[in-house]
């Protein structure tokens, strides 16, 4: 499927789901569940927990599709963002009770080249940041890192770490808007 057509198709399904169309829900699940489940598995690193994440994700899709248009997100970005949020929520909860391994700073994650233009732009702008800061952006997004964990890794207090990372995020924003 071509990207543009794919986006339009996903949007059509979301609009259908907003009207309670079960076929649209099934079609969206059939087409997107491997991508969303793959992301959930990658973040939570546990198949059982990832299944619960996917359940929560599709529950949110079913109940909130009506509000999708007002949100202003692209259809795929909306789905991926919901999945990322639910997965990080689950991972942090499991970490808090010792069911998930603590954050591993040596794990640099999947570092393949992103195929989209936006992905390449982000990658090149991340390369302009000090390497540890770029890693922190990825760790927060894909490994659920919190300020507490990031500051511990930097060897400073949270109050010190936050302004440092915020400055890097502004530098990143500046590069992305060029």
């Amino acid at each position: 499927m071509k990207p543009q057509h794919e986006q339009e198709q996903i949007e059509e399904w979301i609009v259908g789901i907003a009207m309670g169309d079960r076929r649209a829900f099934r079609a969206l699940y059939a087409a997107l569940s491997p991508r969303l489940f793959g992301l959930a598995c990658h973040i939570v690193d546990d198949d059982g927990a990832a299944e619960e994440v996917l359940e929560a994700v599709f529950q949110r899709i079913w109940t909130r599709a009506g509000k999708y248009r007002a949100g202003g997100y692209g259809p795929l970005v909306w789905l991926l963002t919901i999945t990322q949020q639910e997965a990080v929520h689950s991972l942090r909860a499991r970490r808090a009770v010792g069911q998930a391994a603590p954050l591993d700073f040596d794990d640099t994650g999947a570092a393949g080249a992103a195929p989209s233009a936006e992905g390449q732009m982000l990658a090149s702008c991340l390369r302009e940041l000090p390497p540890d800061r770029a890693g922190m952006v990825q760790k927060a997004y894909l490994q659920g890192a919190t300020y507490a964990e990031l500051s511990a890794e930097m060897g400073v207090s949270e109050q010190q770490a936050r302004p440092v990372l915020r400055r890097s995020l502004m530098q990143l924003r500046e590069c992305l808007s060029r």
């Binding site: 569940s33 793959g38 999947a110 195929p115 989209s116 732009m121 982000l122």
Partner: peptide, 17 residues
């Protein structure tokens, strides 16, 4: 959100049970 979701582009898909 648009930029950050590109970090997921290289994550391999997986078919749920």
């Amino acid at each position: 959100a648009g930029f950050l979701t590109t970090l997921t582009e290289t994550v391999p898909p997986k078919t749920p049970p």
